[in-house]
Design a protein around this nucleic acid. Structure first.
Lengths: 244, 244
DNA sequence: GACTTTTAAATGTCAGACAAATGAAATTTT
DNA sequence: AAAATTTCATTTGTCTGACATTTAAAAGTC
């Protein structure tokens, strides 16, 4: 492993890139220990702080983990679905909040993807997935639930629907779309009336999944999307005329 | 901004978390300049190298950018779709390669998502998207094209299809699914015969999009998925009996 | 006024040191 | 001999202080 000492970017960027390439290409395999920081600074002919900055960059992406002590060091990390989920969620959330993505755009993306899962979920969902969904519907019907708690339950419900497809890659992709919507959803005030409507639709979805009726799931999701967009539109209207 | 000097994790992790929270919560807004490294080390009561490690973590996630010079410093970065794409692709690629995701699982996820876009794309695709797809089909028919170049063209084709939906959030979500498949696709040897088949299906997709026939696009995508899985299966068979 | 030079501020890098954690080896105790 | 304890070497985490490099603005020059 060597780097170009003069040409383009900062040294720590180059070193991070070099190690990243080694991991992606498979020259460094999972759980393999990297040379110690002292050895790396020798190899790359840079100081230890520079090596450390490079390692911190990789750690921030969950590509390595570090451990102190005699047998410690930096190890190539197996990127778990959990790690990937949370990175995906952070990125998606920031992307939406920093780029002023409209509610309509985010909502459309989310429900399009979710409907893609629904067909598979109707086929493969287990009793467990259904039980989770029923439990969340029950929770959503509780009086005195805060809007945040209602939203959180909504996310759990939809994740169960997605997980029912039995495809972890799909679940990972959807995690971002569903969870990144949450800050936007939290701006909605859910009245008792609108909660009722949503629960009706949730029940339709659960019932349809129960009898493995993909078309009915899809149709209920379309209705749910339409209703969600209507709610958001009402909020926007209220904001424009706050006195009325 | 303060940190707990004794409790849980490393200082640079705490500092990074503290600044990250400030960005996500909106206390630091886009293009705002952070205090200089010297000022931050004063504020957090840590040394400059520690502050720098924290900043490098944030830079690795594209949350900040740094600039040298008199008016330089660290600035809150607007997470562009481009940045989000590339992070998404890196994460998805690693997730697939490190967790031995089967070709079937990845393929199913990809085509499920892609079909979700196709309906919207049939409605909204512009002449530009169609032109890109036709151009890529033409390229794919060129003799002497390497397998890698064929795959790359395939990715461009499918991205045009996805972009046709006119929803940047969808495009972002799909980027990971489509591009992360490429290393897996590269393991397939595309014979002249199989390229012909794929081009036929690509043409079906382009034609269907041309006349805005969502059902026909969907059907062609289903066929393409089935054919892709068949090709992968053949490769796997060949590997098991290399002498036959 | 336009151009050049200087200067100050900021990040990037380096060197050397100490602190803290940690597992393994060496030692002592039972 | 086995178990518990201590020592010890290794490695990451952090600090201090310094120098190099970049950059834009201020000062100076024609």
């Amino acid at each position: 492993m060597k780097i170009d000492p003069k040409k383009p970017a900062d040294l720590s960027v180059q070193i991070a890139q070099s190690i990243r390439d080694a991991i992606i290409s498979g020259r460094l395999i999972v759980d393999e220990r990297l040379p110690s920081e002292a050895e790396l600074s020798d190899q790359f002919q840079v100081s230890r702080p520079t090596v450390r900055e490079a390692l911190k960059r990789l750690a921030a992406q969950s590509l390595i983990r570090t451990q102190r002590g005699a047998t410690g060091g930096a190890f190539v990390n197996r990127l778990s679905y959990q790690d990937a989920y949370s990175q995906q969620i952070t990125t998606s959330t920031l992307l939406l909040s920093m780029n002023a993505v409209s509610f309509e755009t985010a909502c459309e993306a989310r429900y399009s993807l979710e409907r893609a899962c629904a067909t598979l979920s109707a086929e493969r969902r287990t009793a467990d997935h259904l039980a989770t969904m029923r439990a969340e519907i029950f929770r959503q019907a509780q009086p005195g639930l805060t809007d945040e708690a209602f939203c959180a339950s909504d996310v759990t419900f939809h994740r169960a629907l997605v997980d029912g497809a039995g495809n972890p890659v799909l679940s990972y992709q959807l995690a971002g779309a569903v969870e990144a919507m949450q800050p936007l959803m939290n701006m909605i005030t859910f009245t008792a009336r609108s909660r009722e409507e949503i629960i009706v639709l949730h029940n339709q979805i659960a019932d349809a999944l129960d009898r493995r009726d993909a078309a009915a799931v899809d149709s209920a999701l379309v209705d749910l999307e339409a209703y969600t967009r209507k709610l958001a539109l009402d909020v926007a209207k209220q904001r424009r005329k706050p006195t009325e």
